[in-house]
Amino acid sequence: MTTAVLITGASSGIGRAAALRLARRPELTVYATARRPGAVAGLAGAGARLLPLDVTGEESMAAAVAAVEAEHGSVGILVNNAGYGEYGTVEEADLDRVRRQFETNVFGLARMTQLVLPGMRAAGRGRIVNIGSMGGRLVFPAGGYYHASKYAVEALTDALRFEAAPFGIGVSLIEPGLIRTGFGDTAARSLAGSGGAAGPYAALNAATDRQMSAAYGSKLLSAPPEAVARVVERAATAARPRTRYVVTPAARALVHTRRLLGGRVFDAYLRTRFRTPRPAAAAV
């Protein structure tokens, strides 16, 4: 019997690339999922099986896991990939939109994990691969709420890795840097809608938008989703997977720079990248 792989958010980007790569392995049966089944229809030709799955809906999540367990006994490998970025300053961001982001990035990941763990424990084996971000190790301005969701994934993964190990379940965290998917466009749209053109953070938001556009457009600073898919394959199939995988040279450099330099020096570095005029003093 093959090992069942369940991938969330497989309609595009990292999830789609991971589904295509893992589906090549004859020992794996890949279940590619998305909220809209039509969004993953093209993956069937690559050998993946398709399931509807909305990580913000309890019935949808439970049904997807039950479908896999009915055929395979348990989910062998869960790839928690679904996620997106809600951008805007801490003051201006719409908290209802932030809550929806956390439902996908954090609580959806957590609930999917809860649903597959009983079957994995009964089988005495399993693998959980969480897609985090270098944004769970450092923070850029106007992205605080997105980074907070990825910091939460870091904490959950560290706790889960220890808790699940006695049951033969391995847990790894993948921390991609800038990946050329639709993520940057989604983040830019949310940033544009978070504050007015004459608002107090307009200059910062504009600088953030310029930085994101330039960075995602740079082949030196960013990478295609296939770069992450290769690492997902290693984390999912290695006999002794790493606890963390940082993806892209630029991400590794930034993570180590932030760790070594500390907060004040990293803030100074950010000021050179996000130059904005000093706000005028408010009238008293």
Rank of each mutant, 00 (worst) to 15 (best):
L254D: 11
L28V: 15
R240I: 00
I77D: 03
P118A: 11
D185G: 10
G136Q: 12
F162C: 05
E86Y: 09
R259W: 10
D54I: 11
S222N: 11
M212E: 04
V171W: 04
M61T: 07
F107E: 01
S218P: 11
V116H: 05
A206W: 10
G196C: 04
V284M: 14
R234V: 03
G42E: 15
A283Q: 15
A223N: 04
A63P: 09
S213F: 06
P166I: 05
E92Q: 10
L220M: 12
V30P: 15
A62V: 08
P118G: 05
A253F: 15
G195F: 08
Y201H: 14
R137I: 06
Y269P: 02
A192T: 09
I174V: 03
Q101L: 07
G136V: 05
R242Y: 08
A198D: 10
V284C: 13
A63H: 11
A250S: 06
V68A: 09
G42H: 14
A18M: 06
S222H: 12
L173N: 00
F167V: 02
S60Y: 05
G124Q: 11
G135I: 10
L260P: 04
A202M: 05
V129K: 00
F140C: 13
S222M: 14
A187T: 09
S12C: 03
P249G: 14
A229M: 03
A46H: 12
A282R: 13
T3W: 10
T248S: 13
S149D: 02
S218Q: 13
L260I: 13
G132E: 04
A41H: 15
G42V: 14
N205T: 04
T186C: 00
P176V: 08
A64K: 15
V65K: 08
H256N: 13
P225I: 01
L117R: 00
L160Q: 01
G45V: 11
Y146R: 08
G73V: 02
L95R: 15
G263W: 13
